[in-house]
Design a binder for these strands. Structure first.
Length: 241
DNA sequence: GTGTATGATTAGCG
DNA sequence: CGCTAATCATACAC
């Protein structure tokens, strides 16, 4: 209930955030999020939060006793009712709890920023593996006339590349745009892949193996291979759906 | 540090 | 809903 109550409100992602924070506050290992880096940072935040909290509590207690002592001393010169003392203590506690509230809030903010940073995949962009790029490019340039893989094909590509279907879609979206934007340059690539395809079928077939035997790119490029700007390319599944 | 490549997100279109 | 185009934010190369 520490952070959670502060977090529960302004979470844009839904309940997941509150849950993550709750589990973080409780110190339980959360299973939903698998980024160890994320967890490390989260626990760091939690640790700092608890440290600060403790510090404040300690300071509060110290301050309270200090004030009490002062009042006690004053009570020799003038009468001080217990009620007055209690009131003082209340005020102090109130002040400190409001400070703690602020701490809570800033911690919550930090957690949310952390979350958004890690949730926003843009910030964790990793290039696909060489093989994945090869596979995708091979498909793209083999189907230049219709570079729109069906769902089934996307799934197959995703499986082969070890990425998600969404990533495949993103990749093709980006590729199509960027190919169109710069056909001249992309033609080199097209040539290259056309040559590759012509040379050795598809040498990309392993799925999980970290192939150290990746054959190096062919030193000799194909002689003037006609650009398949519009080849009919017989290979396309053209899925049903 | 700067520039380019690239994966992901977003607005807008049909 | 999937696509395009623009844009963001990072990875990578120099």
């Amino acid at each position: 209930m520490l952070i959670a109550e502060g977090v529960a409100g302004p979470e844009k992602g839904g309940g997941a955030g509150a849950a993550a924070n709750a589990s973080a506050a409780a110190g339980a290992g959360d299973s939903a999020i698998e980024h160890s880096d994320y967890r490390a940072k989260l626990s760091q935040i939690r640790q700092i939060y608890h440290q600060e909290l403790e510090k404040y509590e300690q300071a509060c207690n110290e301050f309270t006793t200090h004030v009490m002592n002062l009042l006690r001393e004053q009570s020799r010169t003038r009468p001080i009712t217990p009620k007055e003392i209690e009131r003082m203590v209340q005020i102090i506690h109130k002040k400190f709890s409001s400070i703690q509230m602020q701490l809570k809030q800033s911690t919550c903010e930090a957690v949310m920023i952390l979350r958004s940073r890690f949730l926003d995949a843009r910030r964790r962009r990793r290039n696909f593996s060489k093989q994945a790029s090869e596979i995708l490019n091979e498909y793209f340039y083999s189907n230049l006339s219709n570079p729109y893989p069906s769902e089934e094909e996307k799934e197959a590509l995703a499986r082969r590349c070890g990425i998600t279907i969404n990533q495949v879609s993103n990749w093709f979206g980006n590729k199509r745009i960027r190919y169109k934007k710069n056909i001249g340059k992309a033609q080199e690539e097209a040539n290259l892949y056309a040559a590759k395809k012509a040379a050795g079928a598809s040498p990309y077939s392993m799925s999980g193996t970290p192939g150290p035997m990746m054959s190096p790119p062919p030193g000799e490029d194909s002689m003037g291979y006609g650009i398949p700007g519009m080849n009919g390319s017989g290979y396309s599944g053209v899925g049903q759906q």
